[in-house]
């Protein structure tokens, strides 16, 4: 079918009149109608295919892998290790490294506030809908990811081997050893890439890309560490040497 006919049907039984010209621009204004397709049937067909695909994947997976059911709950016998659901196990890992107030409350609260604030901090309209906004944005995302993937495991392993809590047990109060010092370490980890960005005159979008990437990768690393490396007593073991035949996958 001729595109013009499809967009501007000749006989619709309606007449059109120019009522008023408004200043300003809507999202589609001036973009030309030829770049669009009808939702019916195209979008609905795509959604239908996606529905079949997603349910098929879940279907097959459910045939192969059974949902776990442990022994009946017993408040008198602590499960060992007692792990939170996988999406909260990153927080549980964080709790091993710092004061519960910092890891359990301040960290998740500031994460949510950061997420809510993103569109109000970076409100430039340019290049919405482009992956990483620019080539430079993509490079910042990759470098931030690489940086976090190196720094965070080092922090987890170092703190696990030489726990600040144990090192400073007799020389500093708890709020310094488990509150102030870990908070300073996290602030330092965040400040290094931000200083580099500041020196290269990054815009707000680029700063957001850096912060979001560092946070996302840190969350992934803490989740993986808590999920795969923590065994009985929530102590750290290599995944191939878990005591008591403990397999973290069984707890999914």
């Amino acid at each position: 079918m001729n595109t013009t006919d499809e967009v501007f049907p000749k006989q619709t039984g309606k007449s059109y009149a120019l009522v008023e010209l408004m200043p300003g621009s809507g999202p589609m204004v001036g973009k030309g109608p030829e770049d669009t397709v009808f939702s019916f049937p195209i979008v609905l067909l795509i959604e239908g295919i996606l529905f079949l695909g997603v349910t098929l994947v879940v279907f097959i997976f459910s045939l192969v892998k059974q949902a776990p059911l442990d022994a009946i709950a017993n408040p008198l016998i602590t499960a060992d290790p007692a792990k939170a659901p996988w999406y909260f196990v990153g927080l549980q890992e964080l709790l091993e490294h710092m004061h519960p107030l910092l890891a359990g409350i301040l960290a998740p609260t500031s994460l949510i506030l950061f997420l809510l604030a993103i569109p109000y901090i970076d409100h430039a309209r340019e290049n919405a809908g482009v992956w990483f906004t620019s080539v430079r944005g993509r490079r910042i995302a990759i470098l931030s990811a690489v940086y976090t993937v190196i720094v965070m495991p080092v922090f987890i392993l170092l703190d696990n081997a030489y726990s600040l809590r144990e090192l400073l047990r007799n020389s500093a109060p708890v709020w310094v050893a488990q509150g102030l010092l870990p908070a300073l370490i996290i602030a330092l980890i965040l400040m290094i890439p931000l200083t580099v960005l500041r020196m290269s005159k990054a815009n707000r979008r680029e700063v957001m890309i850096c912060l979001f990437t560092v946070t996302l990768m840190a969350a992934i690393i803490f989740t993986l560490s808590g999920f795969f490396l923590r065994g009985p007593g929530f102590k750290m073991y290599p995944p191939w040497a878990m005591p008591n035949n403990y397999n973290p996958i069984d707890g999914l």
Partner: peptide, 14 residues
């Protein structure tokens, strides 16, 4: 079960 009971205990303790 034990899995869910202790996961929720740990989670809600946070």
């Amino acid at each position: 079960d034990q899995l869910s009971y202790w996961a929720i205990t740990v989670g809600s303790n946070i």
